[in-house]
Design a binder for these strands. Sequence first.
RNA 1: UCCUUCUUAGCUCAGCUGGUUAGAGCACAUGACUGUUAAUCAUGGGGUCCCUGGUUCGAGCCCAGGAGAGGGAGCCA
Length: 478
Amino acid sequence: MRAGQKIKEILKTSPTGQLVTVMGWVRTFRNNQFIALNDGSTNNNLQIVVDFAATPEITLKRITTGAALRATGTLIASLGKGQTVELKADTIEIVGDSDPEKYPLQPKKHSLEFLREIAHLRFRTNTFGAVFRLRNSLAFAVHTFFNERGFVYMHTPIITSSDAEGAGEMFRVTNLDITNPPKDSEGQIDYKQDFFGKSTNLTVSGQLEGELAAMAFSDIYTFGPTFRAENSNTARHLAEFWMIEPEMAFCDIHDNMNLAEEMLQYLIAHVLQNNKEDLEFLSNRLEEEEKQKPQNERSELSLLHKLQFCLDNKFERVTYSQAIEILRESNHNKKKKFQYLVDKWGVDLQSEHERYLVEKHFKKPVILIDYPKEIKSFYMRQNEDGKTVAAMDILFPGIGEIVGGSQREERLDKLELRMKEMGIPAEDLSWYLDTRRFGSCPHAGFGLGFERLVLFVTGMTNIRDVIPFPRTPKNCEF
RNA sequence: UCCUUCUUAGCUCAGCUGGUUAGAGCACAUGACUGUUAAUCAUGGGGUCCCUGGUUCGAGCCCAGGAGAGGGAGCCA
């Protein structure tokens, strides 16, 4: 079947009357003469010029929005103004019809909410074409980044029996008959009879297994799906999302921050270089959208400038304690403009506080470190002050927390003590504690929510629009 | 899960103080035109006013319950 060229490549060539075959889907058909054909390789359409006098009427009728077709003809300099080249068609073959009365996509602007309901067709729009080409490009660049630095790509399990990670509510995995599960002598569900002979769940993080591998390969990363059964209904949460989790042996919190910052800048630089067209499209789209907002709500930088800004400026590194001081002394706090006023050390920062730090005070990405141990996980390394742990969160404008990481507690006695304090049974994690028993070493890692990165890079505002088929509470279509 | 706003044609939306036959633009169909750029012009078809119940002579509009969506918050990545 395939013996044609991608439109992206054709648009790059200079037209010399060469014979060309293309396949794609009709975006619009104007004047019974001009087909805007798109094959997903780029947002730019190839204009196919049909000789309507020489084409059977029945064929013309079948050239409708959404129809798949193959066109062969000569590539010439366009006689019209909107494009430089066009294909003067000799033959048009309708590969797949599209009933114009029923096809939901029109050559006009649709709301993102409507397109979300037809997620199976939204790839065919300019916006989602750009978004998912960028998503692809970013995913590829993640692997390139780590591969260039000698990291081993580790596939951590999707199904897990460990439920001590504390990263969130989990989805149970079972093949027991849920209408009539087997019970043990105490009347509890008897998971010994379940598929794995024990209670199992979908993973909420690959970190603990990642640490095991890092204690052999030195530098590893995972990049896979994770699942959280939290009832979170926001534009920044998904029940199924993709996470990138590097883990590095013989590294501390500072190496960790350096890697995270280097990686984010690498990925942004990669798309600025390789996906300029799609970024320009999204940047313009955003500007158009913002014209409808009042002046004071518009963003100061365009999407392209915002991305460039992240490359040109070091991320601001501040400790939790410094952040609390800044917030407490801010006019915003003194004038009681925060819903939650900042008064004492030890409270968790609300997203209004994070936004203030990133968007108002520093006006650039911020790395917050050394959080109070009470508000962080058991595995984070305790600092010498006895109050804080070597945790780091990277906050991005418009997104909030995009990276969460830490130096891990490598000292067995301190780790065991902390687990006891937090009520985490050591016997469940003996395999994890073994890394601290046999050749323990300082190590660190972080988790990057891939969709949050795609949100930031594309300038989209709802996380459901940067994953093909979003899974959220009460929504699992397609 | 909490607060808040919304749900009317395929899409985006209007619909006055509760009043009799629910509108517009786009899309679609038919025709005209034929170098168009979301083509243009003319004509036409198209409605479970989210669902259930209630108030009323009369409900798209008022009341109660439910469902779904958007924005904000919490949990986090």
